[in-house]
Design a protein around this nucleic acid. Structure first.
Lengths: 238, 238
DNA sequence: CGACGATCTGACCAAATGGTCAAGTTCGTC
DNA sequence: GACGAACTTGACCATTTGGTCAGATCGTCG
């Protein structure tokens, strides 16, 4: 309930919490306790928010996982929402740059394959980050909607331009670049967000590095075959 | 917190709540009030669970949306968990059969295209159903894990066999059938579960029928091109 | 119509939870 | 080693929320 309302305070800046900036900086010596405790809290929070969602997570639970008393959590992050926001900011930072591999001069097959590999790597190494983000979007993006509508949209629009260039150069089949990006996101994040289902179907107790390699191979083949202009038989020469 | 524990009561049967069965049946006349109220509650619950998740949803909120007093909700569904379970059962029933289009004798391109269209139709018409399910999986499937590990796994294993046959018949490229299914799920459900993000990137206030048509076209083309054996130049004749 | 089960609902309660606070303890610096 | 800032924490509180209950009302069938 309060979530919707909370969403508008504390301008969603990218990096650290505003509080860090106003206090003594962590140059060296000073503030290192803060730095270390914030890190522990952020890590604990990422896990708990991933497992329970925003409403399901309790500050007591997060504090317990970080092995700190609850009051201490509230010393570093005034509210649950502020902590949540910080976790989200981390995730966004994690993903934002991966699309930079898309540049007009590169070979699309290379760029796309790399992107798939990179996103799958994050799904394997930081599944909780992905889950927190998925949960946020799933429930209407009460915190990151502005980010989606400004930054993300711009970024995708930009990269869609690159894809269009690739199409014009005859390197890719004609397709809607934005939907193409959605499909890249969907298939790669699926292995983090729907991990339990994947595990159940594959009959694994845990997803192995091997499983991710299989996923990568299958996705890459599917996407490249589906999106690239068939290279060998150059039916239409430029 | 209680979620994990609640998960084991009330054997997850498919259809109606057990209570319906013990009381007067809804043949006609008798029990029609129950039927109508349960329906309203289920619809309200689907929306609210989709918007807020299990923990974020409140029985008061659901009751309000159904325009019934909270105590009345608890008259029809003893606990929030029971109501949630009923909503989930609806969703599963909705999806389960769509994979039946996969049979060895059919043309894979046709079956796959139909499946994509069907799943996208559900994403458009019942996005909340999809979201409730996604949320459940995202948080570790505390309620439906047994279903995933038994029924769903079997079903996918079964259909994987069909895909393998298609591959053997030279109709499809060699690929891992289970990952192929994951990819179908991922790209189709994305448009329901990540709807806000899709809207933000496309700059839409609402996703139109047109948007879904575009999605369908792009997905179908991508998947068929990627998975089907190239039909015209029959390099390898059977 | 009268009986009886089904349905309805305001009032209530115990537990959980986000957040506060004041009284401490520790840390870095001069 | 002393001083102020940074950090720590048990106790506490207001609010929210799932669930109960007893008494009222309704619907239907004989």
């Amino acid at each position: 309930m309060a979530r919707q309302r909370d969403a508008k305070n504390t301008a969603s800046s990218g990096g650290k919490s505003p509080r860090t900036l106003t206090r003594k900086n962590n140059a060296n010596g000073r503030g290192h306790i803060r730095e270390s405790n914030e890190l522990r809290l952020l890590q604990a929070a990422e896990t708990v928010f991933a497992e329970r969602g925003f409403s399901g997570a309790t500050t007591a639970g997060i504090a317990a996982r970080a092995k700190l008393p609850k009051a201490n959590l509230h010393y570093y992050f005034r509210t649950k929402a502020e902590l949540y926001r910080a976790v989200l900011a981390n995730v966004l930072e994690l993903w934002l740059d991966e699309l930079d591999r898309f540049t007009p001069d590169r070979d699309p097959s290379e760029a796309i394959a790399e992107y798939i590999a990179a996103k799958l790597k994050w799904s394997r190494l930081r599944p909780n980050a992905s889950k927190v983000f998925a949960n946020e979007i799933l429930h209407g993006a009460p915190f990151v909607k502005p980010y989606l509508e400004r930054d993300l949209r711009r970024r995708v629009e930009d990269k869609a331009g690159v894809v269009r260039e690739w199409i014009d150069q005859g390197k890719m089949r004609p397709l809607d670049p934005r939907h193409f990006v959605f499909q890249l996101w969907a298939v790669t994040q699926h292995y983090a967000d729907f991990e339990v289902q994947v595990r159940a179907v594959l009959g694994r107790r845990r997803l192995t590095e091997r499983d991710f390699a299989d996923a990568a191979a299958n996705i890459t083949r599917l996407i490249l075959q589906g999106a690239l202009a068939s290279p060998p038989s150059g039916r239409i020469r430029k």
